[in-house]
């Protein structure tokens, strides 16, 4: 039997009368890189927020590692081994880069020395070791994205939810991040990946779900998704014939 690490079952999220996510279901297998794509406002980030405990889902279930996590707080979700990054990066501005990553590392240890060793390892992994003593707020965006990655890696997650980790980066930077993500998967983590850059998504994902206006539009391999007429219509507008 295939091991489902994350199972999303009929999840909906309403904000008043506004339906942000409507009856979305999918499953993510272990060590998969799973893409979540869709036009702006499709509900991708809202779905992330439902999964990670920031907004509880209005209905439906989120099952992680055989545990129902709908009603858990973000910090409890993190402790279970699911970590997320933010589309709008959230560096702890007045702390140094190393200290930022140490904060993540403290979720698996109480000892400052161990947290520091873990943090240095993650900085090495994403290539930020030269910036360890710099203040996190002063980094350029590309490095802030790497810092986000290092910080969540320090929590030693089983599953990573990356919200537009390549957003705002140039091609070289995107390629570096994608290489880092492949490296993370090789170490046994599972990844869900929200992204706009189709080239990035199709080059790295094993499986993709497309959201549109809060609903699941399609699911399949990158090959299936890029040739799916509904997906093309959603991205290019309904008037086009693919």
């Amino acid at each position: 039997m295939i091991q489902h690490l994350l199972h999303i079952s009929h999840v909906s999220k309403h904000f008043g009368g506004n339906v942000a996510v409507s009856d979305v279901s999918f499953s993510v297998e272990e060590e998969q890189i799973f893409g979540l794509i869709g036009p702006n406002g499709a509900g991708k980030t809202t779905l992330f927020n439902c999964i990670t405990g920031y907004f509880p889902a209005t209905s439906g279930d989120v099952i992680f590692d055989t545990k129902k996590i709908n009603a858990l707080r973000p910090d409890e979700v993190c402790k279970l081994g699911m970590a997320r990054t933010w589309q709008r990066v959230k560096p702890l501005g007045s702390l140094t880069v190393l200290e930022n990553v140490m904060v993540g590392a403290f979720s698996v240890t109480n000892i400052a020395k161990e947290a520091e060793a873990n943090a240095k390892e993650q900085l090495q992994m994403v290539g930020l070791n030269d910036y360890a003593t710099k203040s996190a707020g002063s980094l350029p965006i590309g490095l802030k994205k790497k810092l986000e990655l290092a910080r969540v890696l320090a929590t030693r997650p089983k599953m990573l939810l990356l919200d537009e980790i390549c957003g705002g980066l140039n091609h070289t930077e995107t390629d570096t991040i994608l290489d880092i993500i492949r490296g993370i998967r090789k170490k046994g983590a599972t990844i869900i990946f929200i992204e706009h850059d189709m080239k990035a998504v199709t080059s790295i994902c094993d499986r993709i779900v497309v959201l549109n206006s809060g609903e699941k539009l399609a699911e399949g391999t990158p090959g299936e998704i890029t040739t799916n007429p509904d997906v093309i219509a959603a991205y290019l507008g309904g008037g086009h014939n693919a």
Binding site: T52, Y54, R73, P74, D75, C78, K79, A83, R84, W86, K90, P91, L92, G93, S94, L95, E99, V103, G104, F106, S107, R151, V152, T155
Partner: peptide, 14 residues
């Protein structure tokens, strides 16, 4: 200090 800097980020780090 993490809570002071950003509560959402702090929560996401456990």
């Amino acid at each position: 200090q993490a809570i002071r800097e950003d509560q959402d980020a702090a929560a996401s780090l456990g």
